[in-house]
Write a protein that binds this DNA or RNA. Sequence first.
DNA 1: ATGCCGAGCTATGCTCGA
Length: 259
Amino acid sequence: MKLATWNVNSLTARLQHVLDWLAANPVDVLCLQELKMSDDKFPLEALKDAGYDSAVFGQKTYNGVAILSRAPVRDVLKNIGGFADDHSRVISGTVDTPAGALRIVNGYFVNGQAPDSEKFVYKMKWLDGLHDWLRQELAAHPNLVLLGDFNVAPEDRDSYDPVGLAGTIHHTPQERAHFNALLQLGLADSFRLFEQPPKSYSWWDYRMLGYQKNRGLRIDHVLVSQPLVPRVKSCVIDRVPRKWEKPSDHAPVIMELAP
DNA sequence: ATGCCGAGCTATGCTCGA
């Protein structure tokens, strides 16, 4: 089965791209971030017509996440357990597969703006909350996928300019320590289970011809729990929709799980 | 140092993203 994550930067603006992409890439699960719409605006019917049920945690203007799935999604949970948050950033759910129940945690991680900002303080607290909650979630759900827009470039090779951008947002040691703490829980970065092309990124700035110059960051990730690692067949970034007219600034990341 | 782009809002310039 295939699972994908895509920050669409407004589902209102990008619905047709999502439908076109799903028609060409009929994944089993697609996790979306930055819906930028309230639940009542979510295009449930259009996605149902495309073959997907949706679990939605929307928010007007900012944030908002959804799990689209060909199979029903059960036991849906919104936000991080035990962490009060005004933002709609995390939605979790379980899908039943031939190989057993699969827990999916879809996150739109805090951006953090700059290391000396209040938003960065919020990012650190949010990541602490996520980590503590995930430890329990992993105990309860051995087959777990954590995917989404992490807003962290985990290593220097995940940035187009690791030297010039050292210490700036997405590149700070604090953010990378939080990413590594997630790995320490027993999660693996599925993208790095395989040899990958150098300069592989999932986000490119709209400005200054970022995509055309491949000035990007790899900040969208698919992490899998240890029992799933032997079942991961591939993880690829699909840059095709980044070339479409009026694209999201993020590209989808697709992970394939056996059987 | 800032805007460079793009989206949303009750807007006609601002905030935010990354």
